[in-house]
Structure formats: C-alpha cells, structure tokens
Amino acid sequence: MFDFIVGKYNYWIYIILMMIGFYAMMSKRNLIKKIIGMNIFQTAIIIFFISIAAKRGATLPILEHAHDGGEHAIEAISYINPLPHVLMLTAIVVMVATLGVALAIVLLIYKKHGTLEEDEILKKIEFQE
C-alpha cells in the first residue's frame, strides 16, 4: 500500500493540483480568480504529461556524444522520453494564448459592466433586462 502511494506520487500531485484549479474555476466568484484556477488546472495537466516522460536514471534528451558518429550506440533507455516535452511545449503555448484571450475578454467585461464579480455582473445584466 505504502509503495503504491509513494510509487505513484506524481499522479497524486497532479490530481490534487488539478482539482484545486477545477474547484476554483467553478466556485470562485471573481473572474480573475477563475482564470488563475484555469491556469492551475492546465498546469496540472502539463505536470502530468512531463511526469510520464521521466525514466529512472535517464538524462535530458540532448545527445552530447553524437559527434562520434556511431561509436557509442545511442540507447533509448538513457534519455528521457522527448515526446511529452514536445507536446507540452505546444500545450504551454496554447495555455498562454488562452490566458491572453481570457484576460482580454475580462478587460472588455470590466469596461462594460464595471466589475469583475460574477454575481454583481449577473445582477447588472438582470437589471438591464
């Protein structure tokens, strides 16, 4: 049991982080806090992906001795899996882009409604109608 919990610690961390973000996204009233929650949520997924890539005893996927031209056979086991890193580079960019658009929209909301509290905005919308 203990081994089980410790052996999979990376997953626990990502699940906890993700749930914090998820909860913030849904229950926080302030739009900026929601965005922060969204970021935590996305970051958790990135951590998850990166942790898949890890291999015990392996190093960064940068070939140092490659000049030797085949003298040392390159062993896949000695380098970390590069693919999740690549995917996450893209995901980070997506995350940043989403953040940017979200902030732009929040600015627009602030201009329009004068507040960033969800319930106040809802009240104002109701009032307008």
């Binding site: 999979k8 990376n10 898949i52 890539a53 890890a54 015990r56 062993e75 896949a76 693919l83």
Partner: peptide, 24 residues
C-alpha cells in the same frame, strides 16, 4: 491511476513504442 505505471518507470509503453526511434 490504479492501473498506471509507477513514476519514472523506464519500461512503460510510453517510453517503448514511439519515442525510442526519436532518441536513436
């Protein structure tokens, strides 16, 4: 998570199917 491989396990399918070709 119950069926997931342990952290940093080098024998996971993730490290064995596609990515070795990238490294080698």
């Amino acid at each position: 998570t119950l069926d997931m491989p342990d952290c940093a396990n080098p024998d996971t399918p993730a490290s064995q199917h596609v990515s070795p070709r990238y490294v080698t």
